[in-house]
Amino acid sequence: MGSFQGHALPGTLFLMVGLWHIWSAVVRHVANPKAFEVRVWNPVPGFHGKLKYLELYVVTFGAFLDFCIELLYSTHLKFFVNGVLNPSHLNDFEHSGMLFMFFLLGAIALLSEKSSFVSLPQGALCLIAAAAFCAEYLLFYFHSTTHKGLEGYYHLVLVLLVGLCILTTVAGALYPNSFPIDLCSGIAITLQGLWFYQTAFTLYGPMLPDGCKLKDNEISCHLAESAVRGELLANFQLFSLVLGVLLLVVGSYGFAASRYGGSDLRSMHSVQDE
């Protein structure tokens, strides 16, 4: 079982990174489609380059902050009981491992960019990102906390979205010049962040379906019809989020093309029209 804050914090990080990934991929493509390259992270312009590594700092320190909350605050430093790992906080330890992988991703990318000791290409960073998403996938798939009923359904959708993140990041390493793959990666990360928020508001907030309630740290529905209605509602929520993100992508592409589109983009579109 989780909490509203436990889903909202990682949801915020994934949502910020995903939206920035979408916008950056679109701008880079419309500016110069022939030289497009898949990127795990994207520099932030402005302030004479002082914000260049902002995305990496958000990933690194955001994951580290959440890691400390899960490992230090949630466990109250009670790591062992009677000489064995505290069984009451196994889910906190699992979350910490997942977050540590994303911390490593950000730290390695920063080290690669800001030092001469390690210089990794974007393809290698794609595989490291895929490893972090794999750790997240395995965490939610083989969770020590048994997710049942409506809660299990929301976490099943989350597992599918994480799997999509794995596929797009691995594909980015295999096809380093594919704009659709880079764009799909940003969409998958954004949807994961939004679904974290949706889970928080539905299971631990004001959007809990009628006939279901949160009691004794567990979601229970009085009737089977209530559980089915909750799952159908989850399907509608997922559809709405996907539709909203796709509309956002189309709008972003149109705006970016009108503002940053170069002659290469116009010539490419003219050739496609012919």
Rank of each mutant, 00 (worst) to 15 (best):
L51P: 06
I128E: 00
C134P: 01
L139K: 09
A132C: 05
M1P: 08
F236L: 15
P45E: 13
F36T: 15
P176Q: 11
V242T: 11
N82A: 12
S226H: 15
V162A: 03
V38D: 04
C68Y: 13
F36Q: 11
L160P: 00
L90Y: 02
F133Q: 04
E94I: 00
E218S: 15
F140C: 02
Y260P: 07
V17G: 03
C184F: 14
P87I: 08
G46D: 12
A25I: 00
G123H: 13
L125H: 04
S185C: 15
V59G: 02
T145N: 13
I166S: 08
G262L: 07
V170R: 00
H76E: 12
T146D: 00
A200E: 06
V26T: 04
V159L: 07
N42W: 15
H147Q: 04
L72E: 08
H21Q: 08
H269S: 02
D216K: 15
A227P: 00
A171S: 08
N217W: 11
G244W: 08
V26W: 03
K213M: 07
E274K: 14
H95I: 10
W195E: 08
S112Q: 06
F239A: 15
V84M: 04
I181D: 04
V249A: 15
F93S: 00
R39Y: 03
W20L: 03
L99H: 12
L158Y: 07
F80L: 12
F239S: 12
A63T: 02
D210F: 00
F142C: 07
W41E: 01
G123A: 09
L191V: 05
L56A: 13
W41Q: 07
H269N: 04
M268Q: 02
S96R: 05
L183Y: 10
L65I: 05
F140E: 03
M16N: 03
Q198R: 10
I69A: 10
